[in-house]
Simulated scan of single mutants.
Amino acid sequence: MPSFDIVSEFDKHEAQNAIDQANKEVTTRFDFKGSNSTFELNEDKLIMVSGSEFQLQQMLDIVQAKLTKRGVDIGCLDIAEPKASGKTVRQEIIMKQGLDALLAKKIVKLIKDKKLKVQAAIQGDKVRVTGKKKDDLQEVMQMLKEEKLEMPLQYDNFRE
Results as ranks from 00 to 15, higher is better:
Val129Ala: 08
Ser85Thr: 10
Lys83Asp: 04
Asp125Gly: 12
Lys106Thr: 06
Met95Val: 05
Ala18Gln: 06
Val118Ile: 09
Val26Tyr: 02
Asp11Pro: 02
Ala18Val: 07
Gly51Trp: 04
Leu116Asp: 05
Leu110Thr: 01
Asn23Val: 00
Asp5Asn: 13
Gln21Ser: 07
Gly86Trp: 06
Pro2Gln: 14
Met151Pro: 01
Val129Gly: 05
Ser52Gln: 08
Ile122Met: 03
Val89Met: 09
Asp136Glu: 14
Val108Glu: 11
Ala80Gln: 15
Gln55Ala: 15
Phe54Met: 11
Ile122Asp: 04
Val49Phe: 05
Asn17Ala: 13
Arg29Ser: 12
Leu116Glu: 01
Phe10Cys: 03
Leu149Ser: 05
Gln154Tyr: 04
Ala84Val: 01
Leu77Met: 13
Ala15Pro: 00
Gln16Val: 09
Arg159Lys: 15
Glu146Lys: 11
Glu139Lys: 13
Phe32Lys: 08
Lys96Thr: 11
Gly75Gln: 09
Glu43Ala: 14
Leu102Gly: 10
Lys132Val: 12
Phe4Arg: 06
Met151Ala: 15
Gln119Ile: 14
Asp125Gln: 12
Lys106Cys: 06
Ala15Tyr: 03
Lys126Ser: 11
Lys24Gly: 03
Cys76Ala: 15
Gly98Ser: 07
Ser37Thr: 14
Lys109Ala: 14
Gln119Gly: 14
Leu153Arg: 01
Gln55Arg: 15
Gln64His: 13
Lys69Cys: 07
Arg29Met: 04
Gln57Ala: 15
Ala18Thr: 03
Leu99Asp: 03
Glu160Gln: 13
Phe30Thr: 09
Gly124Thr: 05
Phe4Tyr: 13
Gln97Glu: 13
Leu46Thr: 01
Thr88Arg: 15
Leu110Lys: 04
Lys145Gly: 03
Val118Gly: 03
Lys45Ser: 13
Val72Leu: 00
Gln97Pro: 01
Glu147Gly: 07
Lys66Gly: 08
Gly71Leu: 09
Gln57Asn: 15
Ala101Arg: 07
Glu150Ile: 08
Gln57Leu: 09
Ala15Trp: 00
Lys145Tyr: 02
